[in-house]
Design a protein around this nucleic acid. Structure first.
Lengths: 234, 234
DNA sequence: GCTTGTGAATAGGTTCACAGCT
DNA sequence: AGCTGTGAACCTATTCACAAGC
């Protein structure tokens, strides 16, 4: 038994091998951030150990992650910052221009629209949409808020290829469906619901309430070793 | 071989067994959300299958997760919504009152301060702090912005037991250190850096740039089946 | 008959430890 | 001597499949 795990017998494997493990992909973004910092500081070599430290993971983990991209390190020395940064950016698809439309111009949507972090990392916010007539037409950051009724033409005109949903739970699914139908298949949702999408759509979720609840779980576990549950206190 | 995995030979196991798997904890928050919705609709029984559907996971997964809390389902019938909701809330530590201080009143911090989702889920935003003199003293939502120089007394006065960091990368570590020293050990960070904290601190990260980059990776993989790598274009 | 609860099987991820190269 | 690259071991998580109970 113990079959060799090769499953794709027709790819000639000229490229560094597609399909990185998901856990690796998310760590690569962290390494990239560190590398770009080092690049700005003029550092040009880095070890797996120090990359590990600034990403908060183990160094073996870093080396294994990087090995999926190929062998770009030098034994006894480390990795060349500029080269590695380029390779990771390439692997992550950051050589494309990504045009992001944000649907929902409530508190969160507006905050995201003004968030400088996107622009600097190759993500261009090209539209901001809302359903509220009071908000439509307002200037937020560099953008004017469009009517979500115009979603499809706006996506097409701006050639958006990613959408961020910053919407209340109730309307998220229907807007999501329209986004998918309009041909945008990469969606980041901040809505506190599970959205259902076809397999070919990339959907990621960020859920603040969930994060706080997870913290609550751990906090409670530490605070209550067995006694006192809700000390009313003075 | 095949040792039984019992590792805590001194706990009498009166409680439903502490230490849930992390993956289970995050899904429990999703089930809880669904259950509270059903509760509001007056539904009183639910199957693992329909819980699974609304959380976007498999039903065996749901049953295994719930089994860590004990056997609260009825075979052939399902789970009693009110009861299960209560059990999960209990397991997650949501019977406590959680008092959250938000540090950073920029776009994101303000959006979080006004985000209604927190209040309704047992998280009370009790303070909002910033370093910018232009912002200190402003009213945002129900709160007046405090000076981050006053962090320690504010945390103490408001008895905050969680902190949300909505800060730029540069200052996040130093504020984080002060928060920990001040005795708050549950931290949710939106800052795009890896923060280092002692082991006893619960730190979670939400990173929007990372999420978009992960989307970019998947999007690029689908869009480029093998050709054109960086087409210089017009 | 229908749905839970759970051991067994499988898949995925991390850590170890060391050979291989500079 | 130092650091990478990687098989092997280990641990965590998901899925399967079915017996147990209503």
């Amino acid at each position: 038994m113990t079959v060799t795990p090769v499953q794709i017998p027709d790819q000639p494997a000229a490229e560094p091998a597609r399909q990185l493990p998901p856990a690796t992909v998310s760590r690569l973004t962290l390494y990239l951030r560190t590398l770009n910092g080092l690049l700005a500081e003029g550092v040009d070599q880095v070890s797996s150990e120090s990359l590990a430290e600034s990403a908060g993971v183990g160094s073996a983990n870093v080396r294994k992650d990087l090995s999926y991209l190929g062998s770009y390190g030098t034994r006894g020395v480390g990795y060349e910052v500029a080269n590695l940064s380029r390779k990771i950016a390439q692997a992550l698809g950051l050589t494309h221009e990504w045009r992001v439309a944000i649907v929902g111009a409530g508190n969160l949507g507006r905050a995201l629209a003004r968030y400088a972090g996107f622009e600097t990392r190759g993500f261009d916010v090209v539209a901001l949409l809302d359903a509220d007539q009071m908000v439509i037409g307002n200037e937020i950051g560099w953008l004017r808020v469009s009517d979500v009724a115009e979603l499809e033409p706006v996506l097409e005109k701006t050639r958006a290829n990613m959408v961020v949903l910053a919407l209340p739970a109730g309307v998220a699914q229907s807007v999501c469906d329209r986004v998918v139908t309009a041909g945008v298949h990469s969606i980041l949702s901040f809505a506190p619901v599970a959205l259902s999408v076809p397999d070919f759509v990339n959907l990621r979720k960020v859920d603040m309430a969930t994060e706080l609840q997870i913290l609550a779980y751990h906090a409670q576990r530490l605070q209550v070793p067995g006694l006192e549950e809700d000390r009313p206190s003075a």
